[in-house]
Design a protein around this nucleic acid. Structure first.
Lengths: 229, 229
DNA sequence: AGATACAAGATTGGATACAATCCCGAGCGC
DNA sequence: GCGCTCGGGATTGTATCCAATCTTGTATCT
């Protein structure tokens, strides 16, 4: 597979969702995507279905595929799962981290710091995600990275929906990496969970509690408003 | 979606793999499956791709789809992941178990006991899986059940490959359920991890260490055999 | 005026036809 | 006899075509 068409389309759509070029609830019309990539609908369909499996888009039969719009409950599920998986992953990494891996993680933190310094929020978020993902990859169990990749994509969408844009977790990451370096798995795990809890804590679920999730919800609210008048 | 064709095909293939009617490394020829279901290749392709995402089959481009044949390393990854996920799930269940849920789990244990008593190994294994899956569903976080369903299917294949056929975990399950009933989350978690470790321990990785993993390996062995003659 | 029935447009879902790729064996040259 | 090349058969991958379904706009009836 020299350079796979489907993979290319997959990455492009996923990236567009992550970068918020494709906002939640936006419809992904197969033919439009197909034309813009110069292929037929078939591979696009495959990619969309794959994204649906990862819960990044929602398919409504005979209606279309829409960028997912996670509810507050779903968002909390994602973060809980991340805590479970990443805590276990970081425990593993404490046992196995090599010097080369440490340097790479250190490099990512530097990148993150730099991106944050020059105000590149999108870049900072991406690098942050890469840090977590790389950590999971270093855990020596492919499932950690497989599942985390899915959860990370959803995290991006969730942060776009409910998040403040300022991130201040650079310190957290350094502390985690230090603990790993010291082989202190209990502390590393604790820091990781705390870090993810903080990240979840920066989200504003209150205000967006009744953010329109589906069109039906929008109509429901409309009716209530006019009934009250 | 009254009764979805694709879901039906998906369940059938998955069930066949679980029941070992489709053994590891067997090729899933799209047209054959399509004909036996009276549909075209299109929905079959979708199902096969989905199974590939779940690592239950492996797709080799322009060659075909084959029932997965997990290596020893992959098998250990699956069990490690199950420990992480199910430990967390059972912790949650300790906080939220209702009477109705308890009765259902109790009923599953009775079914398991009965199936084991009449020597229905396949049925016992299935019910055992249902117990674990139901537990995950009761955890209140859909990701536990989503991921566990995937890991369970792979567990079936792994046990078919490396497993002794006798299972003796009925007691384990009852102890776990008791601990949950007592709201003793630490104990329940410990028992669950121990149970999964025991299950992994019954597998015989040594003997099957060099079991053929891919078709290429099979062919390689064939050649060696004929070369030896 | 409001509601309902119907038709047109748009989009997806599935079937079919064709192209691309791989495996394998026969034939050829050395 | 051995290796290489080329062609046949099988299977997957992609494009295209038609059917099924949903949405929306319009006309008609009350």
């Amino acid at each position: 597979m020299a350079h796979d068409n489907e993979t290319e389309i997959y990455r492009a759509i996923k990236q567009a969702i992550i970068e918020q070029k494709l906002r939640p609830n936006v419809q992904l019309v197969e033919e439009v995507i197909a034309e813009s990539f110069g292929v037929s609908r078939t591979p696009v369909r495959n990619v969309v279905r794959r994204l649906a499996n990862e819960k990044l888009v929602v398919i409504i039969p005979y209606r279309g595929a829409f960028v997912a719009c996670p509810t507050v409950v779903e968002a909390k599920e994602v973060f809980e799962m991340r805590r479970v998986i990443e805590a276990a992953a970081v425990r593993n990494v404490c046992r196995t981290l090599t010097d080369a891996q440490y340097r790479e993680l250190k490099r990512l933190l530097a990148e993150e710091h730099e991106a944050q310094h020059r105000g590149d929020k999108l870049g900072a978020i991406q690098v942050t995600g890469d840090f977590h993902l790389r950590l999971a990859e270093f855990s020596g169990n492919s499932y950690y990275s497989r599942y985390l990749e899915e959860l990370l994509s959803l995290t991006y969408v969730i942060m776009a929906l409910y998040g403040e844009q300022r991130m201040k977790c650079c310190q957290d990451h350094e502390h985690i990496l230090d603990a790993i370096r010291e082989r202190d798995s209990a502390e590393a795990e604790r820091l990781m969970e705390e870090h993810l809890r903080e990240l979840e804590g920066t989200l504003d679920f209150k205000e967006a509690e009744d953010s329109p999730r589906s069109l039906a919800d929008i109509f429901k609210n409309e009716r209530l408003v006019s009934a009250r008048k």
